[in-house]
Design a protein around this nucleic acid. Structure first.
Length: 269
DNA sequence: CAACTTGTTCAAGA
DNA sequence: TTCTTGAACAAGTT
């Protein structure tokens, strides 16, 4: 479930291994994933160019090129970026190249390739996405995205997250308020901050908000380092019969902000 | 086999 | 108007 940490890992993989390779062909025929473009539109814009920089804000990824085109990538709920090395770079590339995620491309994975950049060197950059809710588009519009959750400064966080009276978890999930937090990272962050996800933001004082921002940054950094949001300390305890890994109390389940939410029945108040 | 899950979008409600 | 809630989407997983 790609959230900010997974997308940052994908961005770094692109930066490390896909920049500067000339694009020979593009498969953009999945117009559900590539909407609102028609088949061939992205291909026409990219063939002959190379990617020059890989950027990220929240869960949105985009690459500049040595032409006018900007390639936007969003992993949706199940997307992964797979970068294959040049075909002649030696070795059987059964590792599937530079990828992130819990499993490399396996036999049959081609069925889940929703978008492909074929490079002149014989390698490729692919979007692997079982559920097809990922998105590829030219010149992505970032206007609706708030500041990146890993970068937002203290005062901006206070004013944006603290405004209104929605449950704090729903606010953390709002990509227009701050970009990058998904369901698991929200639960992990609130658990670290010992805050009840159902608390409305008007009940949080400046210290609460500062603590929340601190724990969000710490949880995010940790997830990037450990390989994804699923490595969070409380994540494996988000299940029926689960117990808080700090105090041992029963974990509670509910729906907050439209998403399944787990929290410690004792510590998170 | 039916319910559940996930992020984003868009419509509906307050 | 502005803020908040909830359904829909795809399709694999439980």
């Amino acid at each position: 479930m790609p959230e900010l940490p997974e997308v940052e890992t994908a961005r770094a993989a692109i930066e490390r291994s896909a920049l500067g390779r000339r694009i020979a062909d593009v498969d953009d025929t999945d117009t559900f994933v590539c909407r609102p473009h028609s088949a061939g539109e992205i291909r026409s814009a990219l063939v002959g160019l190379t990617l020059t920089e890989a950027h990220r804000r929240g869960k949105t990824l985009w690459c500049t090129t040595d032409g006018d085109a900007v390639l936007g990538l969003h992993l949706g709920m199940s997307g992964r970026i797979v970068v294959d090395p040049p075909a002649a770079s030696g070795g059987s590339t059964d590792e599937g190249g530079d990828y992130w995620g819990d499993a490399p491309a396996r036999p049959g994975a081609a069925a889940w390739f929703r978008f492909t950049l074929l490079f002149e060197d014989g390698g490729a950059l692919r979007l692997h996405d079982k559920r097809r809710l990922g998105r590829v588009r030219l010149d992505p519009d970032l206007d609706a995205l708030g500041p990146d959750a890993a970068e937002i400064d203290r005062d901006t966080f206070r004013s944006r997250v603290g405004r209104g009276r929605t449950p704090v978890k729903a606010r953390l999930l709002d990509q227009s308020v701050l970009a990058g937090v998904g369901n698991l990272l929200a639960d992990e962050t609130l658990w670290r901050a010992r805050l009840d996800p159902r608390r409305t933001v008007d009940t949080l004082d400046a210290d609460d908000l500062d603590l929340l921002r601190r724990e969000l940054r710490a949880a995010t950094r940790r997830a990037i380092r450990q390989g994804g949001v699923h490595t969070g300390e409380v994540i494996e305890h988000r299940r029926a019969g689960g117990h808080c890994p700090r105090c041992g109390a029963e974990m509670m389940r509910g729906t907050v902000g439209g998403r399944t939410t787990w929290w410690c029945s004792v510590e998170q108040v």
